[in-house]
Amino acid sequence: MSRAADDLTEVLAVPGRAVGFDDARWTAMLCAALAERLAGTLAERLAGVALPDTVATWCDNALVQAAQERRSALWEAEMARRALAALGVPVVLLKGTAYAAGGLSAGLGRSIGDLDILVPRDALDAVEAALLAAGWEWVKPDPYDDAYYRRWMHELPPLIHTSRDRMIDVHHTILPLTARPTPDAALMLADSIVLPDGLRMLCAHDRIVHAAAHLFADGDLAGGLRNLWDIHCLIGESGTDGLAARAAMHGLEPAVARAGRLAHALYGTVVPEGWQRLTVVDRLFRRRMLAVDGWGRDVRRGTRLAFYVRSHWLRMPPAMLARHLWTKWRR
């Protein structure tokens, strides 16, 4: 394992551990943080720690960047709110934008990318029309992808705003309809929390369930350390009472339990005793997550391919996967 990756997780958990690092050790950890999109988060955590001048400079720069990403993300959410206000449907913010809008600790210094929202499935057509009317357009005009998306995916095909050049992903549930676990989207919507401007975010437990589902089922774990930090913050803020039961209602108890175990192992999250030991498979996930080195490179290419295939399998039953890959390859 690279020391930079270990230093990163240990210092995020307990910032005081960085005191006494020499320049080379700082350099490697900061570089790894940037590669994992945790620069702003790390800079926030290091506030209040006595830092060498050049590290303080790096942190200041990282905080300005994070503030800019936050502003852009919240503005994108506001413009989506304006476009959809007249429809009267609940619009639930997901992931980083939700953490920022909701004033959650997971939002501090967080690097935020595209806007993700969750709306009722029967409102999808109206939402699509309203966004197109307000200046968004489709990213990929490919008929096969489009048909696949609409029938099986958990979101509209990606939309991008013409003048702001930012993407929005409109979800009607949090996992593809072809995936094995089938979360209860209606329940998530029903229990969502209203924010001051009228937008919504998921309730505390659902936020953790969504983050865990996203972490394991929705990708090849690229960005795993950041997603796991989100879960660490979310659990820290709302605790785990009733979490496993809520996760079970969505068929996602294994994912949430794994997230809890890994967060405890990497970040020292306070979790119930049953989540305080890693399984053999957990260790593979941890290996994959800690695959960044002190130059910002991904050093586990072999593991990455295995995870990519696995993540596709999780979203599609094998026969369908074969057909999808065949059609993709033929084009």
Partner: peptide, 12 residues
């Protein structure tokens, strides 16, 4: 330079 660099470049 002294201390920690502002940026890392990799020629790979």
């Amino acid at each position: 330079p002294v201390g920690v660099p502002d940026y890392t470049v990799r020629l790979e």
